[in-house]
Computed example of a mutant assay.
Amino acid sequence: MHNAPYETRNIRHDMAETMLRIGHGCTADDLIGEGFTGRQVELHGPAARDLANARAIRRS
């Protein structure tokens, strides 16, 4: 992920933080309701989910 463009890293970081804030059961509709576009969720959602999961493990 360190080779991803700056904007992509920011989207993934922001999306992961939003997922953590919403918590278990966060859906694509939740993310869209938080201001992400459907396309961003489609493109970056899986990587953001992985990042959120890794951060959740570190925080516990």
Rank of each mutant, 00 (worst) to 15 (best):
M19S: 03
G25L: 03
A54R: 14
R49Q: 12
T18E: 15
N10H: 09
M19D: 01
R49I: 04
A47D: 15
H2S: 13
G23C: 12
Q40W: 01
N3Y: 10
Y6I: 11
H13M: 13
M19K: 02
E17F: 08
R59A: 14
S60K: 11
I22F: 08
N10Q: 14
T37C: 11
E17V: 08
R49P: 00
D30R: 08
A54N: 06
N10S: 07
E7P: 00
R21F: 09
G45R: 01
A47G: 10
A48F: 02
E34V: 04
H44I: 02
T27K: 08
P46T: 11
L31Q: 01
A54K: 13
E7H: 11
E7T: 09
G25K: 04
G38F: 02
D30W: 05
G23V: 09
A48T: 02
H2E: 15
T37G: 15
A16Q: 04
P5R: 09
G35S: 07
G33F: 01
A48K: 00
Y6S: 07
I22P: 00
G25Y: 05
L31Y: 01
H44S: 06
R21T: 11
R58T: 03
E17M: 14
D29S: 15
T18H: 08
T18I: 07
A28L: 00
P46I: 12
G45D: 03
T27M: 05
T8P: 00
A54W: 06
G38S: 13
E17D: 14
G23T: 09
D50R: 15
D30K: 09
A48P: 00
G23R: 10
E34N: 12
I11F: 01
V41T: 02
D30C: 14
Y6D: 09
A52L: 06
R21P: 00
L43Q: 05
G23F: 08
T18C: 15
N10L: 15
A48L: 04
A54H: 08
D14A: 12
C26P: 03
R39A: 15
R12H: 05
Y6E: 10
P5K: 10
L51I: 04
I32T: 12
H44Y: 15
R55Y: 12
R59K: 13
G45Q: 03
R49H: 09
Q40M: 10
P5G: 07
C26H: 05
E34Y: 10
M19H: 03
I32C: 07
A56D: 10
N53W: 05
T8E: 13
H24G: 03
R39T: 15
A47P: 02
N53V: 08
A28M: 02
D29W: 07
G35M: 06
G45C: 08
A4D: 15
G45F: 02
P5I: 03
T18R: 13
G23M: 10
H24L: 12
R49F: 07
R39C: 07
Y6M: 08
L20E: 14
V41I: 11
S60E: 08
D14W: 08
M1W: 08
G33P: 03
A54M: 09
T27Q: 06
N53F: 06
N3K: 09
I32M: 13
